[in-house]
Design a protein around this nucleic acid. Sequence first.
DNA 1: ACATAGAACTGGCACGTGCTAGTTTTTGTC
DNA 2: GACAAAAACTAGCACGTGCCAGTTCTATGT
Lengths: 349, 349
Amino acid sequence: MRPDDTGRGRPPTMADIAAHLGVSRQLVSLVLRDAPGASDRTRRRVRQVAEQLGYSAHVGARSLRRTRSTDLGVVFTPAHSTEPEIIEHIYPAAAAHGYDLILSAQTAVRATGQAVEELLGHRCAGLIVIGSHLDHAGLRALSRRSPVPVVDVGYGRRNAHYDVVRSAGDVGIAAMVGHLAGLGHRAIAYVDPVAMPAAALRRRGYDRAVRRLGLAADVHAVPGEYVKGDYFDEAGATAGRTLLRRASLPTAVVTPNDHTAVGVLQVLLREGVRVPQDVSVTGFDDAPIARLSSVDLTTVRQDPELMGVAAVRAAVRRIGDAGLAPGEAVVPTALVERGSTAPPGSRRF
Amino acid sequence: MRPDDTGRGRPPTMADIAAHLGVSRQLVSLVLRDAPGASDRTRRRVRQVAEQLGYSAHVGARSLRRTRSTDLGVVFTPAHSTEPEIIEHIYPAAAAHGYDLILSAQTAVRATGQAVEELLGHRCAGLIVIGSHLDHAGLRALSRRSPVPVVDVGYGRRNAHYDVVRSAGDVGIAAMVGHLAGLGHRAIAYVDPVAMPAAALRRRGYDRAVRRLGLAADVHAVPGEYVKGDYFDEAGATAGRTLLRRASLPTAVVTPNDHTAVGVLQVLLREGVRVPQDVSVTGFDDAPIARLSSVDLTTVRQDPELMGVAAVRAAVRRIGDAGLAPGEAVVPTALVERGSTAPPGSRRF
DNA sequence: ACATAGAACTGGCACGTGCTAGTTTTTGTC
DNA sequence: GACAAAAACTAGCACGTGCCAGTTCTATGT
């Protein structure tokens, strides 16, 4: 049934491989960690028997004995739309530096702290915390408690306790406003879901761009509660309804979040407003929903690959030299033009 | 900086706690694993010092020594929309049985096999594979290779090698058709994205319901490639455009996937068709997108909590008795009525 | 044939914990 | 206050691996 059972109930160990070949366990160890000191013939034989017995190294024993850990701990929120994409790209980034990943989820009933605690038990060399619900004080406490460097991927700012990786939200939004102005838009509204952690930064981008272009600011701030899952979407829908009640619609609506943009979009579509012919709508994140061919949202891409790479790089840097001061990596954004934007008053074929 | 440094570069161990109190390491071990044989006073003191030193058990050392593993390995796809929700609910389910979780991602560049291999290195007591891209032969090979029981959460069928957990897709779709018929619909179309793994099962539900109700079957099969990320959405959009080209629209469109439903929805909305006033549209999965207040899709809920509970239960059952034959758990679905359905020809206020 | 260096291989200890089998201390009983 | 029994605590080995310090083998040059 199982691969070559050694008779014992346990999975095969290096000793089993060694016994099988009539060599010492140390030699097997040498081969399996690619250390010098074994002949090619021996390497082949060891590898073959390992395969045959279905050997798999005991991660626990290895981490127990090893001086240097080769694991990075990652905390993430499974239910979030963009975080899992970062996870996906963080694997190769870590592998490039010789690190494995250990994932730990933070959920509604499982706090960041608990996830971190579990990772520390695995003796990771560093911690990457993605989209934590903790504020600065919480993250600082967490960094103090952690014997290894902590990297926060989110919306934090440079500080003395943990590394920060975030996207250039202000620049991204400003670029979007500039793009719309380039298409000929003059009436560009902005929806501001103020309870969103990154809201302030992105809002600054709008304000700055509008001022520089000499346009009239037209901000629709929507209060709310961040913990509520559908807040983003709801905020867009609310702002959309407000817009519809006005005498005239703007020609473009900029939002700092894809879900908020979809909220606006749906409300407009249901009232017979054409997008992008009558109104252009834009988002932020390039979440999966923005890519749906039916939604086809022009948005600001928060590159998950670059975020992952930057996070790993920050962790590796401080693992290498614990004395270094934590840094701040600002990942550039990219404008993704899709079908929800067009010159004002345009008709499509 | 760090919590009470013991002077060594390493994190504190049980021996450190013991030395701090002038007791033996074994006593500390007793207390920390809640074993009998220590006075209340000692328990308090040990716990206090552990806290003070920032002690965290070395998972590796523990798994090395322990007879019985207390970890369940979970393979999942971060980019998928519904799997992360199962992850979220699987934590408490595992905890209820005394198990911790070790997550391992499968991505475009990281095959199921690689994720499993890593988990086996952690010496998990069982493996839960969610939404694997492997077919039955692949899963069978994987189960053979694994020294511990494997549970497949997806679309497999009962077999002798691994446990299967899946939702009752046929029953769910049939219930949806029945619900629409109850609202007065007679022209109920079905979009069939045939490349979707669960497509066949769900299609059977439509066929069965239509036959039972004496309605005319109206199926729009859309071929495609499963690996292509936006296939589901595209399939819906394609089917929607086909429908619009016909002389008359059906009064309801049933789809076996939320993204497909959104594809249909968007195409209809853009052509001025009102949902649900003119046409009702339904999905399957209750993915996050269905809950967006702007989409507000009536759908069939594939309860992620029940899936998680069933998966853990299956794993625990076979961990307890490896001789048991693998089972098949069919998780019931629930109809979630939202705003995309209404009686035919109805006008909302 | 002999020394020599390098390649190939082995011995032994340590990592931090769980568990079984002991030993000491406290408690209860007449 | 002696004795048993229970409670509280300790000794020691084992888990599978990495790494350092040896030891044996093989090739090379004279």
